[in-house]
Amino acid sequence: MQHLTKEHFEPISVDLRQAEEIKRPSLSFWADVWRRLKMNKVAMASLIFIVALIVCAVVIPMVSSNDYFTTDLAGKNKKPSAEHWFGTDDLGRDMFVRIWYGARISLEVGLAAAFIDLIIGVIWGGIAGFYGGKVDEIMMRIADILFAIPYLLVVILLMVVLSPGVGTIIIALTITGWIGMARIVRGQILQLKSQEFVLAARSLGADSGRLIFKHLIPNALGPIIVTLSLTVPTAIFAESFLSFIGLGVAAPVASWGTMSSEGLPAMKYYPWRLMFPAVFISVTILAFNLFGDGLRDAVDPRLRK
């Protein structure tokens, strides 16, 4: 039997600072989200698709031999072919290039509207839900009033005041677009704020701002992302409606929304005029949704392993 001597032992130093050392690599919140997002194949595929779409929307109209405005009345309503991949529209314009031009507007409008709705909605709903009482009452009633005034009237008035263009469209979309988001956030905050972790954070001395934006909002991210995924398609289609009123980009530029509403009556006769814009919208929205789901899972602290 071996005798244990003192030499076999080595005293460790008692260093309090070391006790606090973090052995795992230090990751910021978003770096951690990114690490977990990368593991989700569906979400990554969606992200790649979205990036590719944006690149195509920028590049294809620049390099294509066709343009979006030259009409060819003799070659109207042609089926998809080698020359016109997506066929031609009722003025003989190449649908392929028009789709990619449309992508620029629809993506721009959809994403910008979603982003602005998100910011306003989260702040408004967050504050109303957190403070409750009179603040809540007044803020939510303001939202109700805005929601109830006929939107079409407001938009026609906007048209008179502002000049048409993408910027105006985004303003028109966000006037009432954030209300849904604000309602959902408020509802979530109301539910969450009486839970124990909020009490814990509060007793640790967290102030209201920190409580709302560090503790409550991250826990409400699921519904927020879902609402956001509704905002994008709504914005894309609302844009075509606003273009109809005269707020939108001037013809002959056409967004996806405009193209699909114009293609609708042609559904029976020239189906490609509806199908291409409609399929692009659907697939894009699907990609945004799947990416949103992945992102939700990635930010959910409970699913962290």
């Binding site: 699909s260 919208i281 894009t284 929205i285 699907l286 949704n289 789901d293």
Partner: peptide, 21 residues
């Protein structure tokens, strides 16, 4: 979710025309 997303991204008026057709 694909069904749900189709419902979201194909707006009512296109869907209505499809159903009708």
């Amino acid at each position: 979710m694909v069904i749900a997303v189709l419902g979201l991204s194909v707006p009512g008026f296109i869907l209505a025309s499809f159903y009708q057709y």
